[in-house]
């Protein structure tokens, strides 16, 4: 179970993600060493996922300034992941794209698989909103019923933020994640001030 301010569960840390070149890595390898936002998209072809990426893009400069790595994880094939990147151009903006077609990472992250989340009233409205905002929808980019979510991990893989999505179009507010990082940096500054005052002058 993923819990904020606790270490990342071991099964999630060890989940295998495959990049667009087909190279496998564990989530711990992908996210360890620096603060990292792991954004799970439902799959690689849904309009809601494209809308979520569109909400991420304006936040990338702030995340870059704060030295936060950004990783997108979907659940289709490697070709789906490649097509997703070609459509949305995320890797050219410093975002890494991975897939876990086995859904082990999604299960370990506590992300639900829900028909109601796709075809229920909120999912249907979410799909319509995304399509009205110009996002294309296709049915084959991975598991169509898988829901996404977001995790913010510290360099030592402690969970700083966790937000599972409950239905298609239940967008994660990326600005909330940036706020968590900013608060962390502000506390680092405060600690540096304390250290400076304790240092001999």
């Amino acid at each position: 179970m993923v819990v904020v301010s606790e270490p990342l569960p071991i099964e999630l840390a060890n989940a295998t993600l495959v990049d667009a070149a087909g190279e496998p890595s564990t989530l711990a390898q992908v996210a360890g060493g620096k603060t990292t936002l792991v954004l799970f998209v439902r799959q690689f072809a849904c309009a809601g996922c494209s809308e979520q990426v569109a909400a991420l893009l304006p936040q990338l400069p702030a995340l870059r300034v704060l030295d936060v790595g950004v990783v997108i994880v979907g659940c289709g094939t490697v070709d789906h992941a490649r097509g997703f990147d070609e459509r949305l151009g995320v890797t050219s903006r410093g975002v890494r794209v991975f897939t876990d077609p086995t859904l082990v990472a999604q299960r370990a992250a506590g992300l639900s698989r829900s028909r109601l989340g796709v075809f229920g009233p909120r999912g249907t409205l979410g799909l319509l909103r995304a399509m009205m905002n110009g996002h294309k929808n296709a049915w084959s980019g991975g598991d169509f019923y898988q829901q996404g979510g977001a995790l913010l991990l510290s360099p030592s893989l402690r969970v700083l933020f966790y937000r599972p999505q409950r239905w298609l179009g239940d967008l994660v507010e990326i600005g909330d994640i940036t706020d968590v990082v900013l608060a962390g940096r502000a506390r680092e500054n405060a600690a540096a001030l304390d250290a400076a005052v304790e240092a001999p002058s």
Binding site: P58, Q59, P61, A62, V65, T178, D179, L182, R185
Partner: peptide, 12 residues
């Protein structure tokens, strides 16, 4: 997003 970036740059 813009204000967060400005504050982030300042903090860094």
């Amino acid at each position: 997003a813009h204000v967060q970036m400005a504050i982030g740059q300042d903090l860094v």
